[in-house]
Amino acid sequence: MKEELVEKYFRPGRLPHLWCPGCGHGIITGAIVQAIDQEGWSKDDVAIISGIGCSSRASGYLDFNTANTLHGRALPIASGLKMANPKLHVIVVSGDGDCTAIGGNHLIHAARRNIDLTLVVFNNSIYGMTGGQYSPMTPVGSKATTAPYMTIEEDFDLPSLAQAAGATYTARATTYHTQLLIDVIKKGMEHKGFSLIEAVSACPTNFGRQNKMGAPALMMDWQRQHGVPLAAWNKMTEEQRAGKFPIGVLSERTDRKEYTEAYDEVIARAQAAL
C-alpha cells in the first residue's frame, strides 16, 4: 500500500498495529483501504463495524466512523446502523470464529435479508487472540490447542454457506493475491446487497506454529500454491482440486431486492394506507 494512503486513512499515532509478525491481517486492512480509496468515498460516509478478535482490531486503526463491538455481533449492529442511515457505506470486519461460530446465526440472516453490507472475513483458520483454538474454518485434521490430537470437524466453505443463505455477492482472495483481494473487495462494495468476501489470511503464531507451516512467507507461498483462480478451478478435476480452493468472484446475482430499499416500500405501503 502506498504511504500516502496510510497517512490518509489510518488514525495518527496508532501504528505499528498489534498484529504479530507475518500476520496477514495488515494486508487485508490495507486492501480495504485501497478499495475505499478507489471508490473515492468521503471518510465521513464510511463506517467500519467489527466484532471481537484479532481481525476486529482493524476498525480502531482506520479513520472512519468505527466500532469494535462484541464477539460475533458486528452484523446486527451494522444492520441497525445501515437501516438508520442507508447512505453510509457500511463495511463489516470479522474473523472466521467471530463470523462463523459465535456470529453464525447473524451471518445467515444478514445474507438472507440481502442488506447492503460488505462483510470482509479475515480467515486465519484459528482463534488467534485467545491463543490458537480451532474455529469452524480450521481445516479438518489440523492441530489446535483445543485439538491436540487433530480436529475432527469439517470446516465451512464460507462463500457457499453465504450463497445458500442468500448473499448476492461472494468472493474469495488471499493475502498473497493482494491485487485480486483489493478488486473483489471493491466489487463487493459496489454491489447493492449483501456481499461476503473471504480473505484468506495467515496466523504464523497460532496456526502456523502448531501445524508446522514454516515462516510467514512460506504460509503466504502456501496461499499462492493453493488458491486457484476461478476460471482455472472450473477446468480442474475433483482430484486436482483436492486441498485447493477457488479464488475470485464466486457468485453475483441481482435478482433479489436489497433490504433497506425493500423497507422503503414498506414505508410507502404503510403511509398509503393512512
Binding site: I49, P76, I77, G80, L81, K82, A84, H109, I267
Partner: peptide
C-alpha cells in the same frame, strides 16, 4: 417513516438498536 426489524434472535434485536442509535 421509522423502521422495524424482526431480527433472528434477541441479541440481534438489541444489536440493531445499538447500531441505529449510533446513527443518531
Amino acid at each position: 417513516g421509522g423502521k422495524f426489524m424482526q431480527t433472528e434472535d434477541e441479541l440481534a434485536g438489541m444489536g440493531a438498536v445499538i447500531g441505529a442509535s449510533l446513527a443518531g
